[in-house]
Write a protein that binds this DNA or RNA. Structure first.
Lengths: 125, 125, 125, 125
DNA sequence: GTGGTCTAGACCACC
DNA sequence: GTGGTCTAGACCACA
């Protein structure tokens, strides 16, 4: 993690936490780092981590057990993936194709770098 | 303009203006709307439009003729396109393909909506 | 026990215990489950159950016999009922009727679900 | 407002704000007090009011216009009422009838205080 | 002027 | 030990 980014720190941390869960490094059965632990590790204020955890709780990515700590929600990976898919299909994808035409993108350039994806696309038809 | 969008309004307007120029609706020979006109049209504070125009002037997308108004720069479309291409190739594109695999996107779904683009892609090779 | 509930767990347990006594499942003559037994059954920390028992002792709902265990107080049901009645009449009931008007509740809806109670109400007059 | 209550201050403020909107004192067209204004008026820290406004935004009760302030959402009253109704029907109502039987409530007592409601209930059938 | 984020430090209830 | 709330004060971008 580094915080040079313009995005709010607590959201960067949220991404980080989601990523850990998505990759299976933190599983529903086990407690994720406490507010204080993670704050110390990342060298930020505990309030900032608290805010991250509140944010993720509300998105049903993690759940709190009173007096014990936070745990990944049972269906956390599905939730995260669904959330990102929605984002991707609604925003990124239309933007992508809009840019393709608007910017007169040199398709050979893409082909060079990402050709295999396009071929898979066609293969999948 | 969407006041609830997380992107700054003056940047939303900058995108809008760039788009008009890119699409050839506003050409180098003709004055673009004055700060007040555009502010009235978009129902925003003139200061905000002013900020947009300053921003675009600085990027050499528009130029100011004192006492007359703002005009698209002669090479505005090239400038805009170059800027956006850079952005697209460096950030959007890698992110796009990263998501494609990470989210296990159903390619048939994309095909349904954007198939013609992909086919054009292949035809252009 | 619902760890996600906003009410403290030891109070949730206190309600549970009170309920058992109120319903006559645990009577003054017989020992109620030991701290460890109940903790195991409810899958909570024994300290938490301890706190419940201390709380209920203080309210004269249960009594401790040293070396033997906890027993419902002789007048436990009266104590509990008095306590809850107070709570009910002072807080719940006014709130209930306030909401009934404020929220424009469809009384037919209530009738459908709880009609028998209302009819009993009238019969009891 | 007084904050002797055990409920978190920011939630008490949220109730207060909702109430104002519900009563039509603050309408969708007009800005509600700024974070700083309300904080000064209620003599709490601006962060606390900020937290209230975040909470209410998220519940779609108020919306933010960048750089201008917060406004009641267009359908704020519906949202608030729906939320409270849900709460009432799911929690308060079942609890109410459960208590009626469990506590052996003296119905004449209720009749005395709230009789007119019950009669309306019957009249509505 | 508006909101938004972050830090530092405190106090509390609860497990 | 855990989270949760609150204050005080700072800095920033934006309208």
């Amino acid at each position: 993690m580094d915080f040079r980014d313009k995005q709010a720190i607590y959201l960067q941390i949220a991404d980080h936490v989601s990523e850990q869960i998505l990759l299976g490094r933190w599983t529903p059965g086990e407690r994720i780092p406490s507010v204080r632990e993670l704050a110390a590790e990342l060298e930020v204020n505990p309030n900032t981590v608290m805010r991250t955890y509140e944010f993720l709780s509300q998105q049903n990515v993690i759940v709190n057990k009173r007096g014990i700590g936070y745990f990944p929600a049972d269906d956390a990976t599905d939730t995260i993936r669904a959330f990102r898919r929605e984002q991707f299909l609604q925003n990124d994808l239309p933007q992508f194709f809009k840019n393709l035409t608007l910017l007169n993108i040199d398709l050979a350039e893409i082909e060079t770098r990402y050709g295999q994806y396009i071929h898979e696309t066609n293969a999948a038809q």
